[in-house]
Design a protein around this nucleic acid. Structure first.
Lengths: 173, 173
DNA sequence: AATGAAAACCGAATTAT
DNA sequence: ATAATTCGGTTTTCATT
């Protein structure tokens, strides 16, 4: 009984199969997925909706920076003077070039993934932005040569930021 | 000779708006996007298809590891005996726990992002999988404490505003 | 789980740039 | 020649039962 309530807190086999299907093609019709799994379309639709509402999953477009002319990517390990960790993290996260920033424990205090148009742009980022943040002690760059595997996940914390970024004017003629 | 062979390798304003829409909701109906932009649905459909075919964009489901019970995430820098770099990379990429693997230049030869259920699982990954790959010399783990920013390869807004003209030509064959 | 109406999708032919 | 639009038939979505 109570089968019609969707307080489902567990991800079952069906949910996983649905997620797998949508990881391959985020726009795959629910009817097709339903047929593959031998269940009704409405069931698939309901489950997807539930997975999205509970922030287990998101369906989004992801882009390829290289194809967009951003060919200089790197991972930077940063050491920070301890008492300033949070404010430094906030400052670094604010840079456009930083697409991924983690606070972590280990050799580094922060790991930042940075994407630039080219080496000149990257050098400019290091000298004019990163190294000028007060509290940044040391940074070690690993330049990307090849992306071997990319199973995009997403701690979708506050990931969806405002659609129209405030910094500069979007419409220029 | 110089007939304007509008090779559609250029991403114009319309493409960018479409991508931005799909970055927020990968399943947004093309009809809606078309209405927002004041163009036909077929045009949106053709552009999306083209963007996907040329691998500029992908529409996929991304999941939240924490909600799925994977609470131990880390970035691991790996040093490898040089002549085996590619095969080691291939071996590491094959592990389920590795969701992101980069070959890079700098302190490390590889950077691997690893997601595990818990510390026990992670320890098992290190001892039974990573360290058993022939050619792995050294590994330095940074455990994630907090994800501050995550714009995973989805940062097209930057590409559009490019305020300073890039010094190098953006056209790459 | 099934139904039916409304919406969205899709292929192809047509027009426009 | 490339891109946008129109148009119809088909499929999918979605609220309701």
């Amino acid at each position: 009984m109570d089968q019609h309530t969707y307080n489902k807190s567990t991800i079952d086999e069906i949910d996983q199969r649905i997620i797998e299907a949508l990881q391959q093609d985020g726009r795959r019709p629910f009817t097709k997925i339903a047929a593959d799994l031998g269940i009704s379309e409405a069931s698939v639709r309901q489950r997807v909706s539930h997975l999205i509402n509970t922030q287990v999953m998101q369906i989004v477009a992801v882009t390829n920076p290289v194809k967009l002319g951003f060919s200089s990517a790197s991972m930077i390990g940063v050491r920070v003077s301890g008492e300033r960790l949070l404010e430094v993290a906030e400052a670094i996260a604010a840079f456009d070039e930083v697409i991924y920033l983690i606070i972590c424990a280990g050799r580094f205090d922060l790991m930042a993934e940075v994407v630039c148009r080219d080496n000149e742009h990257f050098l400019n980022f290091l000298t004019e932005k990163l190294y000028k943040v007060p509290g940044v002690l040391q940074a070690e760059t690993s330049m990307y040569l090849r992306v071997c595997k990319q199973n995009d996940w997403a701690f979708l914390s506050q990931a969806r930021l405002s659609p129209s970024p405030p910094p500069s004017t979007p419409n220029i003629e």
